[in-house]
Amino acid sequence: MADTLYDTDLIVIGGGPAGCAAARMAASVGMRSILVEPDRLCRNLYRIPALNNVLGGYTSGPELADSILAELKSTGLCRLELGRRVTDLRVDEVRVTITVDTGARLTAPYTVVATGVGPLQPHDVAWISAPSGLTLPPLWQAEADDAEGRSLLVLGGDRPIGTFLRAHPTTGTRLLVAYPAADEYKIEEIREDPRITLLPAEHLSLSATEGTAVSAEAVSQDGARQTITADAAYLSIGNAPTAPSGDLVRGVDGYCPPTDQHPRVIVAGDLRSARFQRIMTALGSGSEAALHAYYAARELTKG
């Protein structure tokens, strides 16, 4: 497909499950692709210790990631550009042009943007007050050995809490989960776990940490105040989209709805919406995105 107008048939931005699936599907229909990823392929999958919602019998993120990488690295039509970050994306009626952090530019008729999301920090949400500049690690970065026998303050009730507990069924870690009313539905799967102490909070004020210890004051919906102390604090308050600058249309929530984009820009994976942040949906949407480019390039319709 590629000719002198382009460097390749398809540029894939992002090397997570959606981006890898897009590159693999593109190759299966004879399309050349360049996949650009600033880190390692499937980086976040390697940090998920337990899986229970993907096909293929995979029970851990690393197991699934290894399988994806083995397939992609054996795909001759995919050129990997690892350690490179896309700093700008421009699109016109003829091509898509991306600029990477080295200043180099790449062109293609279409691009799949699958840069996913990154963890929100305390300053990103209104219900938490924290010292200026404080950043905390997400819960999935907590190592079981380091957490054993300790109490961890977890900010937010997002899904990684359940993943952590399933991955470490015998851990003696105690999780103090402070969460807003909006997260009430998310904590159902962990409510009965004896290692969990639920702390519904209208507002939480996080004090400056001394060493690894942390303290906070939680205000409940009825105005009651409670002081919380823990050995360390971790995040589980959700994620924010991490799209490159340039000609991407963003919604008010920062996500990039696929139907709002230029016809040459196809959004896949978690970047589409907060509603579909699952590995299986990422894999499916990445594959579909590559087929979308394939059929569009031939002026065909799927049917």
Rank of each mutant, 00 (worst) to 15 (best):
M1S: 12
L5R: 15
D7P: 02
I13Q: 05
G15T: 11
G16H: 11
P17L: 07
A22V: 06
R24N: 03
V29D: 08
I34S: 01
D39N: 14
C42T: 13
N44W: 11
L45Y: 04
Y46S: 03
Y46M: 07
N52D: 15
N53P: 12
L55P: 08
G56D: 11
G57F: 11
G61S: 08
A65F: 10
S74R: 13
G76C: 02
G83R: 09
V86C: 09
T87I: 13
D88H: 15
V91Q: 03
D92C: 10
E93I: 12
I98R: 07
T102A: 07
T102C: 05
T107I: 01
A108M: 05
T111A: 15
A114S: 13
G116D: 04
D124L: 00
V125D: 03
A126S: 14
S129A: 14
S129E: 13
S129Y: 01
A130I: 02
G133V: 07
E148D: 09
R159D: 05
G162N: 11
T163S: 11
H168R: 14
G172H: 10
G172R: 15
P180M: 06
D183L: 05
Y185R: 15
K186G: 00
I187K: 02
P194C: 10
E202S: 15
L204E: 01
E210A: 14
T212L: 14
A216R: 06
A218W: 03
G223H: 12
T229C: 02
Y234K: 02
A240P: 02
T242Q: 12
G251F: 00
G251M: 07
D260E: 12
I266V: 14
I266W: 10
A268S: 03
G269W: 09
D270G: 03
L271S: 09
R275P: 00
R278A: 14
L283C: 11
G286N: 07
G286P: 06
H292R: 13
A293S: 11
Y294I: 01
G303Y: 06
